[in-house]
Every structure is written in C-alpha cells, then in structure tokens.
Amino acid sequence: MKKYAFTLLNALAVFAGLLLLWQGLGVVLHLPPYMLPPPLAVGRAVVARFPSLVASLAITSEEAAGGLVASIVVGVLIALLFAQSRWIRRMLYPYTILLQTVPIVAVAPLILMWVGPGTLSVTLVAFIICLAPIIANTTQGLISVEPNLIHLFLMHNASRLQILTRLRLPHAVPSLFVGIRIAAGISVIGAITGELFAGSSRVGEGGLGYSILYASAQLQTDYLFALVLAATVLGFVFFFLVMFLEWYFLHNWHESARTMTDD
C-alpha cells in the first residue's frame, strides 16, 4: 500500500513538473498561444467547450467500440475457420497479413467513397484495423493446444464439437485477450483516422478526428490540445476496460491476468 502511494506521488510530481515546464516554456520563448497554448488555456478550453468535447468523445468512442466489437465477433469466426485445417490456413492466412500491412490512412478515403460518409464507414475503418490482431492471436490460441490434451479428449470419445467448445475455445481465451488488447488501442486510432476523411453533416460538430481537423483549420489550438487529450484518455479507458475484462475472466487460472493482482 505504501509502495503504491509512493508511486502515485511520484507520478503526480512528474506530471506537475511537466505542466510547469510547459507553462514556463511559452512565457520564456514568447510563443504565441496558437503555437503552444499554455496548460491553463487548454484547461479553460476544456471547461468552456465541455458539451461539444463530450459529444465528440461519444461519437468517436461509439465508432471505435463498434469496430472493436465487430472485429472480435468476425475475427473469432474467421479464426474458427482457420483452426479447421492447415490447408485453409496456408491458403487464407497471407491475406490477414495484407490486412495488417495495408496503410489504413490510404484505405480510409476509399472506404468513405464506397460506403459514403458517416458513422458507419468510420466504424468500418476501425473494424478493418482491428481485425488482423484478433484473427492472428485467436487462431494461434485455437491451434496451440497440447497434443496430449487432444488425446485425453479422444480417449473419452469426444466429438469434434466437444473438442472445440471444451478444449480449443477456452484454451484460446488468453490469446484472444492479447489480440483484443492490441485491437483496443488501435481501434481509437482507426476511428479518428476515419473521421479525418469522413467530414460531418453539421459544420463544427463531429467525432474527435473531425473536430481536430476543424480546430486546426480555425487555429483554435487550445481546443485542439483538449481534443488530443480527450483522444488519449479514450485510448486509456479502452485499454483499462480490456485489462479489467481480462482480469475478470482469467484471474482464476491464467498467469497473464494474475500478475496484475499479485504484486
């Protein structure tokens, strides 16, 4: 407990120091506020435009969460298909690597052109960027079952379905969570990237990505900083939410979840 308090105190001290440095830098270097708004100005912008900030945050988190959940559902289904045979994996796996290597910034405008601007296409961008890590990790978890465990199931005349539901799927859950953890972080990036191209039906109102673009065009640098802050916080919240779910489902039996509580 004492150790925690000390760590927290340390972190807060560093944070306060950074804020001071930031505030001081603008004064010392005579930077105009539109180049580097001081933290106080950013704070004022957060307070003054709180409703629109929250509205942007809500739009982006919905898109990111939607893409993430969809990628989990579709990714697990594809992984189940991949787990069926080595032959299927050999044929289709290269395409999931393609999914990972294609730059999302380049694909986003295409998707917007095909699907049309709006929340759906942004969710789709988030979905695409999340899919590869889910597929790769879940497939790995499904096929890396110890041979003797399969033998054990076979000795009890287990059906293919029983082996899948009682052995492969539970065994894959820790790997699935590794995938979700990666995907959760990039889902926010995907949604914001999508929004950069998606525009908005009402001028000045949209998700974080759109608002960042708008604020930068208007030289509202203090609000721009507030938006960046909000995007970071969103990523953090996603990350910790996934960490909590992982702990909740795995703490009884899996090492990766236990280490978070043990020390």
Binding site: E146, N148, L149, H151, L152, M155, H156, N157, R166, L167, P170, V173, N252, W253, H254
Partner: peptide
C-alpha cells in the same frame, strides 16, 4: 475406448 482410461506423463489438467 469406453473401457480404457489413459494417464499421461504430465497431469494434462484443464487450467480453467
């Protein structure tokens, strides 16, 4: 098979 049980070198328990 129904009349046989197999005990492996490692305990092969399901950790979950």
């Amino acid at each position: 098979r129904e009349t046989i049980s197999y005990i492996f070198q490692d305990a092969t328990l399901l950790p979950w």
